[in-house]
């Protein structure tokens, strides 16, 4: 069902854009991938890689969000909670500054995101056990420092400022097959490795101590899941910049519809995240009177109000 819906929305996306294509043209072009017709070029070189990137990024962030929320037992946790976004921004800025013409800003963001998460992890580790609350606080402190450094450097270099800001808005416009290859492999490997941990993630709902009595090697499972969620996040950041709210909102929608059991939550968060971001990307490609806008803006506009709703609900429940 998830696969069929995702295929349907991708097919819809292939028809829609600055040049509208008929369903027949899309069908013909998909059957003849090496045709040199204009619809085939639009579909195979422009729209399909972009839509697949949107699906992978949405799915990866939805899954990473579900994992982070279970690890931190926190409904407001998202894939960036331990410093990935600030790390990505810092890495993108650094590469853009040091190698301005290299086009390696995404690589810088990937490395920055991964490095920030592990720096936060090492800071929180201190002596022995890593406490999840300490990890969030360490990630927050690191985010503040990296965010301040990024802003400081960007203010001093106006050109970098424009590049990094436009990257941070989150866009997959113009992505090609060669940019898609390695992040896709990384996302698929991380997803396949994450799904068998559904029982451990369920056990973490009961707390670390109860997970221990259920035979979970708490430290090892937390570290491994943090690595997998960070890989999903960093690969998404590489492809699309900072896409907000998908990782926060999608797992909550699935919990409301299907419950909190990770056996369903993980795959459904992937498909719902993928469908959501492909839908947002279709809208972002052709906003009336404006034209193409970064997909991150559209996802924020839809995700933002729902985030406020969650905040309100949480306040009511805890009050």
């Amino acid at each position: 069902m998830g696969i069929a819906l995702l295929a349907a929305v991708i097919f819809l996306g292939l028809t829609y854009g600055p040049v509208t294509l008929s369903w027949q043209q899309v069908g013909q072009s998909l059957i003849h991938p090496f045709s040199s017709s204009i619809p085939a070029i639009i579909i195979w070189d422009i729209r399909l890689p972009r839509l697949i990137a949107a699906a992978l990024v949405g799915g990866a962030l939805g899954t990473a969000g579900a994992v982070m929320q279970a690890l931190f037992k926190n409904p407001l946790a998202d894939p960036y909670i331990v410093g990935a976004s600030a790390g990505a921004g810092f890495g993108a800025m650094l590469l853009s500054l040091l190698l301005p013409a290299s086009g390696l800003m995404g690589v810088g963001a990937f490395l920055g995101a991964i490095t920030a998460v592990f720096a936060a992890y090492l800071l929180a580790r201190g002596q022995g056990r890593v406490h999840m609350l300490t990890l969030i606080l360490a990630g927050y402190a690191l985010s503040l420092v990296l965010g301040a450094l990024t802003t400081f450097v960007m203010l001093a270099h106006q050109k970098t400022l424009t590049q990094v800001l436009s990257w941070e808005l989150g866009g997959i416009h113009g992505i090609g097959w060669h940019e898609l290859l390695w992040p896709s492999i990384m996302i698929i490997v991380a997803l396949v490795a994450t799904w068998p941990f559904a029982p451990e993630l369920n056990a973490f709902y009961l707390g670390e101590e109860q997970a221990h009595y259920l035979g979970v090697n708490v430290m090892r499972a937390q570290t491994l899941l943090l690595i997998l969620a960070s890989l999903l996040t960093a690969a998404s950041v590489y492809l699309a910049g900072l896409i907000g709210f998908v990782g926060l909102v999608i797992p909550h929608i699935i919990r409301r519809l299907q419950g909190s059991n990770h056996h369903l939550l993980l795959p459904l968060s992937f498909f719902a995240g993928a469908i959501f971001l492909v839908g947002a990307d279709i809208l972002a490609e052709q906003i009336p009177w404006i034209g193409t806008v970064p997909v991150g803006l559209v996802s924020d506009l839809i995700g933002g109000p729902y985030f406020v709703y969650i905040l309100f609900k949480t306040r009511v429940v805890s009050g």
Binding site: Q69, P199, N202, F204, L206, G207, Q210, R255
Partner: peptide
């Protein structure tokens, strides 16, 4: 353990199934 607050909700059957982990 003594009663604990759950991070997110699970059903009774889902909690019992965790015993097989």
């Amino acid at each position: 353990s003594q009663l604990m607050p759950l991070g997110f909700d699970l059903t009774v059957a889902e909690i019992l199934n965790l015993g097989k982990l």
